[in-house]
Design a protein around this nucleic acid. Structure first.
Lengths: 214, 214
DNA sequence: CAGAAAACTACATCAAGTGTAAATTTGCAA
DNA sequence: TTGCAAATTTACACTTGATGTAGTTTTCTG
């Protein structure tokens, strides 16, 4: 766990600094005057680079908001890869989710950054859409990993049904709870509850149905 | 059930015809040369209107593809509103889904149009994102309706967990199945199976848990 | 048929995003 | 240190989606 860009060449370090400057400038501006009201030129100017350079760091204005979207997914994939052979899918999935929630509690610094960006991704339509797309593609990866972890228990399609149910239920429940003005704690509880309820369906399955159909 | 725009003024009929011309022209062009390779100007030209007029019929290029996205949702909401008082949520939800799938089997004409647009919405990233956004907001409406249908059995957040699990599971399973090259029949079966599996979790719940927490 | 309302068009404008070639900066070796 | 190659940044031109506006055409109503 070391800070940004130790033992890297000057070139690499500068690139990381520019990237971080763009992220900070963009998020500050988004909070201050709104996402749609902020232009890429303004972001670039605030980070002291040309507009064109922005697009060599991020493919789109949306991408800045989701710059760290893979981190949580990669953690989940790592956790899933650690599953013991023969472990039940419901247990694997439950562990992955629990570990993900646990990660939220740890890093206070991270959490502070998450709250305002979360408001953005819930409010701005194009960001909501982009977020859902990332979530969906993440689920596809998770489903593949779950199938790899429990190849005898679940086909890929069945693993997809399981992951989709767990994540889909948690996402909608969380969103609605937050939209009702629930506290962060209540919101998290709504998500966990949704997960438990979806996992119940998975646990109810018969252990080894020999994959295919009659 | 009557055809497009009987007993309407000329003005209204013409508007409907223009709208339909835009849809047809757009979809034809999208199939022929791809969504991103087709410009709005080309669509407008093919439908014999000005480019500006296109945007008085559709707020965006994406919207043409999803012009009928509310139909299925409205049908589902209608079905849900017909629920008997005291009916179990799992039964209501199961009936809504079954009715939705049934509607697909009926209208052959509709189905022929759905297949190619489905390929579009699976292939083109911006359309995938937009489709997921519409699906998500649709789920919010469904959850509200389910909560209205079973106010004593489920809170709004619980109803959201249920709807999210059912739809999320079905969506991902369907997508993955289709992506594996499954036949339309197999694909549908994957979706139905995912629904059944998510509903099992809902059925496992105790009947009347008096809403809130301990 | 005349006047009002609705729809359409032309035109100007803005922001996101891409291609390209020139200029600048960095890395490295003589 | 100097000089050259590679990476990076920049300026500029351009395309496309989308919006505002003002003027023209079409439809509706009395």
């Amino acid at each position: 766990m070391h800070a940004m860009g130790e033992d890297l060449g000057l070139r690499e370090r500068k690139k990381l600094r520019t990237r971080q400057a763009l992220i900070t400038a963009a998020l500050d501006l988004f909070m201050e005057k709104g996402y749609e009201q902020t232009t890429v030129s303004e972001i670039a100017a605030a980070a002291d680079v040309s507009t064109r350079t922005f697009f060599s760091y991020f493919a789109s204005k949306e991408d800045v908001v989701f710059h760290d979207s893979r981190e949580g997914l990669d953690r989940a994939l790592r956790t899933m890869a650690e599953a013991a052979p023969g472990e039940r899918a419901a247990d694997v999935l439950g562990r992955v989710i629990a570990d993900g929630y646990a990660a939220l509690d740890v890093d206070d610094q991270v959490r502070r950054g998450i709250v305002p960006t979360n408001r953005l991704t819930m409010t701005v339509p194009s960001l909501r859409a982009r977020g859902l797309l990332l979530l969906f593609d993440g689920q596809r990866e998770l489903a593949e990993a779950l199938h790899r972890a429990c190849p005898d228990e679940l086909t890929l399609v069945e693993a997809s049904a399981a992951v989709g149910a767990v994540v889909g239920g948690a996402k909608l429940a969380t969103f609605v709870a937050m939209n009702q003005g629930a506290s962060p704690e209540e919101t998290l509880r709504a998500g966990r509850q949704a997960v438990e309820f979806a996992l119940a369906g998975l646990r109810a399955r018969i252990p080894h149905p020999e994959t295919a159909a009659p």
